[in-house]
Amino acid sequence: MTDTDTAPILVTGAAGFIGAHVCRALRARGAAVIGLDNYNDYYEPQLKRDRVAALCPDVDIRALDLCDRDGLAALFDEVRPTRVIHLAAQAGVRYSLTHPHAYVDSNLAGFVNVLELCRHRGVQHLVYASSSSVYGDSATPPFSEDQRIDQPRSLYAATKAANELMAHTYAHLYGLHATGLRFFTVYGPWGRPDMAPLLFSRAVLAGRPIDVFNHGRMRRDFTFIDDIVNGVLGALDHPPVDAAPPAVPHRVFNLGNHTPVELERFIAVIESAAGTPAQKVYKPMQPGDMIETMADTSHAHAAFGFEPATSIEVGLPQVVDWCRRYFGRNA
């Protein structure tokens, strides 16, 4: 498939895990892409640089922070994008317990800056990252976009729910076409080192113990990166249509595997791929975590054919193999 829009697609968070994979997929289908990333030290910036070099070395990624309003405006004026994929954010549930201002700056103030520039620079479609964490305590599995999201369990989740409200407001007031994507525990090669797939894989390979929270009684809807990228591009290609009020051109979709996995099974697959047993240290539930996530993806399937195809038995060995190659014996 080729991309017929000649204006570059602007991807924020382009050096991030999902962002770099999305940039690679866009380039593979012929799209012009410009990225931005602030290369912050939430985790090792060198991993981000290595990720870009491996996945999308031909993409021009500018070192820029979302809170730099003048710099962001200058980039929009230079690139003149008609489509924006906004993936930049301060991630992590647990980090939000100790560094709240980072989330206010990036996820709230930064998102307003992106919305304002999309509004004033004539962007035709904004696709932005939300999160499965928005469901919090007010929804029950399987999580559907029709369920309430007004009882978040962390500040991170609250900022992502706020993003959805803000995008809806801009769609209502200014006709900005926007699509929010609620990602469910994305994993794969070149993933985030603070998330369980890499944390557990590296520890098992190196013979270090792993912390198993809530004594292993957790279920997660682990979603492989290739499936997520297909969903992002599908959403990008199918913007909301104009409709008579009170409808607004804003939609939100779950992107998950719709098959929750027991944490113990997840660990067992890593053990098998690593060829060694895990040293498990069972601990109580962490503040802010959710016991179970499960995506109802019927809306995304109906809108743009989203159909995740990768089981953990296929995806996790790829993570373990990548950890061996990238981190070496002492993963």
Rank of each mutant, 00 (worst) to 15 (best):
V252G: 01
L233D: 07
K280P: 11
H238S: 07
C323L: 13
A235M: 06
H238Y: 06
L316I: 14
A309R: 15
I228S: 11
N230W: 03
A244T: 09
Y282C: 01
I291L: 06
V252E: 00
S298F: 01
P277I: 10
D237A: 15
H301R: 14
V248C: 12
K280M: 13
A268G: 07
V281R: 15
P287N: 04
D227N: 08
R265H: 15
V232F: 12
M290Q: 15
S298R: 15
K280T: 12
P249C: 10
P246Q: 06
D227W: 11
I228L: 14
I228F: 12
Q286C: 02
Q279K: 14
K280V: 06
L316N: 13
T276Y: 03
P245D: 07
Q318Y: 09
P284Q: 01
N254A: 01
A302P: 04
E262Q: 07
N230I: 00
H250K: 05
H238Q: 09
R251M: 12
P246D: 04
P260D: 10
I291Y: 01
E264N: 10
A309L: 05
L263D: 05
M285T: 02
I270Q: 03
V241R: 13
M290C: 00
T293P: 04
A273L: 07
H301L: 07
V229T: 11
R329I: 10
M290P: 00
A278I: 08
R325C: 07
A244Y: 10
A309N: 04
T293R: 00
E313W: 04
V248W: 11
G328M: 06
K280F: 03
M290W: 00
F306E: 02
G256H: 02
D296I: 02
P260N: 07
Q279S: 11
A235V: 11
D237P: 00
G288A: 10
V319W: 11
H258W: 12
T276N: 03
A278L: 13
L316G: 11
G231T: 05
S311G: 10
A278E: 14
F327N: 05
G328K: 05
I228W: 07
P240K: 11
R265T: 14
R251L: 10
S311H: 09
Q318I: 06
N257D: 08
P284K: 00
E262T: 01
T297F: 01
A273F: 05
L255C: 12
E313N: 04
A235K: 09
A300G: 06
T276W: 01
F306C: 02
P284C: 01
V281W: 01
Q286F: 14
H301K: 14
P317F: 08
G328D: 10
L263Y: 15
A295D: 02
H301W: 12
A303Y: 02
L316W: 15
D237N: 12
A244F: 11
A268F: 09
A302I: 02
E262M: 04
D242K: 09
D226T: 13
T310D: 04
D242W: 09
A309W: 04
Q318C: 09
W322I: 05
D242T: 12
E271R: 01
D237R: 03
Q286V: 07
V320W: 13
A274Y: 14
A274S: 11
P249M: 09
F304W: 12
P284N: 01
N254M: 00
E307R: 14
T259F: 09
H299Q: 08
A302F: 05
E313D: 15
